[in-house]
Nucleic acid binder design. Structure first.
Lengths: 232, 232
DNA sequence: CTAGAAAATTAGGTAAGCTTAACTTCGGTA
DNA sequence: TACCGAAGTTAAGCTTACCTAATTTTCTAG
């Protein structure tokens, strides 16, 4: 394996591409531009350079794909990011809505040695504070199949496993509702009109809250009842 | 106080200038170029830009000085650096010869919030693993007057307080001799020819080691006997 | 008080990474 | 099938931060 010497910007593009694919979305110029908050021409230019390095596969006007080498780089950065998030939460008391932006900056600058020391202190963890999986040292990923909160049937109880969103405001809000990874929720209903989901939060007689459908689709759960997902 | 938005490169120049002054050296273009491992024209260019921002005082061909604003920025970075060094050593088990390069990269990327959390975990420390003073939150510096190991009189006992050097190789070597901050040494002699200093390391009957004069001048001590410094 | 070396600066150039403006290509619908 | 809008690309240009080569300034020693 050749030692890659990539800039933070390059790492960001690779990570961005990886995260799009992780969410099941196509890697397009526009999607990357939005994810990285740059303009489309910037993406075209960087994609060309990364393709030249063998990290990205791209024919003009077609979809972008990460090569295995590019995926490896992205996983390394994602590992840094999620280890840092967990470390900052666990050992430095940062809230789950604060850790993302800090990790976003530090992820490009920690050495392999520090990465390993952090992983060791955390006991080689598999999940970060948002429930996102942490790639292992060999860059393999723990796999779980989760169900979107918005896709549960009424009456089904589930444990929140992952919240796929990084906006501090939204995360903070979900925190105030108690809707964090590990929390137990029961699906109540979908509003007949509009896109609103109502859930009960807590194991026994918990509080009932309504959240927007787009938010509920970012909350991934492990259902505890048998009949689980609503049809379609 | 206006929010400064400086690049890591700019911060490095300001820190470099500050550290030269801390060592009592003149801030020249050449000295900065060597400290930052860039060429003199790079320094001239950056100095011009930092002068434009009011962080540096400079008339062409004259010595460079930091303004109070520039000093404040430098102290902030030095605080980050030394807090990180201590944190990495204390909480992540890194050796004193490894922490410097890690801190050098991270110092530009930690938030004020993280800085404060780290300082808190460490108990608002005043000294880093090399014995270098850590600027306080208000950027004031704890002052100690120390004596170079190379300037002690024969027979004087002293505690090593600070080692002003960052080369991992040298630091590691001094570590193997037990010559680290906190260690007690007794000055034995200066070799009659050449520039070699001999000391006994340890409180009771310690091992005797000889080190180069340039190294001994980087080791700063708090003498415990009364008659302390050699004349001249 | 002047020559020459050392230090600093200017001139000119490169690369990364971004921008806006102008264009091409693609794909779906009339 | 031809067109039109959206997506992508090319073109031109900016800033940061570096470089080498050439020039200028300063200081010191004779």
């Amino acid at each position: 394996m050749i030692r890659k010497d990539l800039t933070p910007a390059m790492e960001d593009y690779l990570k961005g591409a990886y995260l799009l694919r992780e969410r099941g979305e196509d890697i397009t110029v526009l999607a990357l531009a939005e994810a990285l908050k740059v303009t489309p021409p910037s993406v075209t230019g960087m994609v060309k350079r990364l393709a030249g390095l063998g990290l990205i596969e791209h024919t003009p006007y077609r979809l972008i794909e990460l090569t295995p080498a590019g995926t490896a780089v992205a996983l390394e950065i994602v590992r840094h990011h999620r280890l840092l998030e967990l470390y900052l939460a666990e050992f430095l008391g940062m809230a789950w809505d604060e850790v993302h932006s800090e990790a976003d900056r530090l992820e490009h600058h920690i050495s392999e040695d520090l990465e390993e020391r952090i992983a060791e202190r955390l006991g080689q963890p598999a999940i970060d504070p948002h429930g996102d999986p942490i790639p292992a040292r060999d860059l393999t990923l723990p796999e779980r199949d989760l169900v979107r909160l918005s896709a549960l049937r009424p009456g089904v109880q589930a444990t929140i496993a992952r919240v796929s969103n990084q906006e501090p405001g939204l995360l903070h809000y979900l925190g105030t509702l108690g809707m964090v990874p590990g929390a137990v929720v029961t699906f109540v209903e979908v509003a007949p009109y509009g896109n609103v989901v109502t859930v009960k939060v807590g194991a026994g007689k918990g509080a009932v809250h309504s959240i927007a459908g787009e938010v509920a689709s970012r909350v991934l759960t492990m259902p505890t009842s048998d009949e689980v997902a609503a049809p379609h």
